[in-house]
């Protein structure tokens, strides 16, 4: 006798597997990225020509640091999911597909960690 609910047993068994969840999280991330990217480009414009100290002062303010971390996390999450879709579309060899998916996941995790830790180290003054 299984203790799993009927719903739990059939979830993810459709042709799309976890597709609906993937789709929905992808859209939510995109939605978050619209204001974050507009804010970021506007900040870059205001930082044009800024030197090291001006840059650290900007990066080290709690509001900017928070928004930067949100941007980094949302951006790499979006990149990871989207590149995954591109790979699934064009790489048909199963081994090559899984290897590239893992490589993309690993690269986005490492890059977002470097980004977040950079922001935090400036925020807390190293």
């Amino acid at each position: 006798m299984s203790l799993r609910s009927p719903l739990g047993r059939i979830k993810g068994l459709g042709i799309a597997h976890e597709g609906v969840g993937h789709w929905w999280v992808h859209r939510l991330g995109s939605l978050a990225l619209v204001p974050l990217t507009i804010w970021f480009v506007a900040s870059l414009v205001s930082l044009a020509g800024a030197d090291y100290f001006a840059m650290r002062e900007w990066m080290g303010s709690p509001v900017v640091a928070g928004l930067l971390i949100m941007l980094i996390v949302a951006m790499f999450h979006h990149a990871s999911m989207s590149l995954g879709v591109v790979i699934e579309d064009y790489v048909h060899n199963e081994a090559a597909k899984i290897a590239s998916l893992i490589a993309v996941k690993a690269a986005t995790v490492v890059l977002s960690l470097i980004g977040v830790l950079s922001v935090l180290s400036v925020l807390f003054g190293r």
Binding site: Y52, M55, R56, M59, L68, I72, M75, F76, A79, S82, L83, V86, L111, I114, G115, L117, S118, V119, S121, V122, R126
Partner: peptide, 19 residues
């Protein structure tokens, strides 16, 4: 989208350099 994913390298490099 693919080009922007490559561009994230520059962004991370810039932030890491500031840190």
């Amino acid at each position: 989208g693919v080009a922007l994913a490559a561009g994230t390298l520059l962004l991370v490099y810039w932030l890491a350099a500031a840190a």
